[in-house]
Amino acid sequence: MKNNNQHIDEQLLVAILEERATGQDKLNFQNWIDATPENEEIFQKMLKIWKSSKEIEVFQRIDEAADWKMIKAKSGKSRKLNTTKLVMRYAATVLVLISLSLVYLYQTTPGFGKYAQSHAIMQKEQILLADGTEVFLNKKSKIIYPKYFNSKIRNVELEGEAYFQVKRNPNKPFIIKSGDAIIEVLGTSFNVNNRTDGTTIVSVNSGKVSLKNQNTGELVYLTKGEKGIIQKQELSESVNKEFNYKSWKTGVLVFKETPMKKVFADLEQHYGVKITNKSLKIDTLTYTNTFTNAKLDKVIEELKIGLKVHVSQKGNHLIISDENN
């Protein structure tokens, strides 16, 4: 199980910015930068704010000659300009700006302060949140969450797909923002799939889930075996007839007298391939089989034998045709 390892000590970042970091500090910083593209974005954001605050140029803005003329005109006598207060005034301004910058980053920037993030790019990830909730993050997905749940609610944001096993806490609802959907639970297990076209699908495995369209305010309650869909600002609910909605997590594909078009769609989704069917004889057939952590080659062989078809593969493209073609 993975606990987020992308955090970095704020004092180390300040040391880097002030160019007083030790060799080990620089090594730790570089390891953090290399860990994920988001860390580079975080640092660049902080660097921009830092440079803006430095533009005040404390000492260059103290025009001693101008200040001396002003004092001399008012007093009618020469005296040495006391620059200490001016320096302290500008220094205090810089300090306030830097402090506000750090507070802003702490409050809003995942990976720097109170929020953490995990970005599954090439492989799935399993994350344990501070409240004991388990999150299984699919490939090409990202989740942002607090390092600690100190408020009255538990808020996270999801891009992509994840399976949640929420630790029950009646006093602290667990709320997920994903696309146009706001999902609220107390403790349950369910799958959230926020697709690139803006569609969000919530499939409930246990317990009760509320699904709200944040654009229209429409709300439905889903229980075990049901799913809700928000698509083009429309919210719908139905019995979940999808056997394989969490196959990406379990590794198990189940087909029970499933129409071939649906079989191919599930295989495309699960293995990340494109399937072109040129065999008219199997269009009206159904298929029954179960694959458990099966490699694509094994699935292809099973299709050949069970359907009596020819399957050719060109990269990620499978072409199905009759055996005599």
Rank of each mutant, 00 (worst) to 15 (best):
I33D: 03
I33K: 00
D34E: 04
A35E: 13
A35D: 01
A35W: 06
A35S: 08
T36P: 05
P37E: 04
E38K: 14
E38P: 09
N39L: 01
N39M: 05
E40W: 05
E41R: 15
I42V: 05
I42N: 07
Q44H: 02
Q44A: 14
Q44D: 03
K45Q: 15
K45A: 02
M46Y: 00
M46G: 02
M46F: 06
L47K: 07
K48V: 11
I49S: 03
I49F: 14
W50E: 01
W50L: 02
K51I: 02
S52L: 06
S52E: 09
S52D: 12
S52N: 15
S53Y: 11
S53I: 11
K54T: 12
E55G: 15
I56T: 08
I56P: 14
I56L: 13
E57S: 05
E57P: 06
E57N: 15
V58P: 14
V58S: 07
F59G: 10
F59P: 04
F59N: 12
Q60H: 11
R61H: 03
R61F: 07
D63M: 09
A65N: 01
A65G: 06
A66W: 07
A66V: 11
W68E: 08
W68K: 08
W68L: 03
W68C: 02
K69N: 13
M70T: 08
I71F: 12
I71N: 00
K72Q: 10
K72D: 05
A73L: 13
A73Y: 09
A73P: 08
A73G: 15
K74W: 06
K74G: 15
S75M: 14
S75G: 15
S75A: 14
S75Q: 13
S75I: 04
S75E: 12
G76Y: 00
G76D: 08
G76F: 05
K77L: 14
K77F: 11
K77P: 06
K77Y: 09
S78G: 11
S78H: 14
R79A: 12
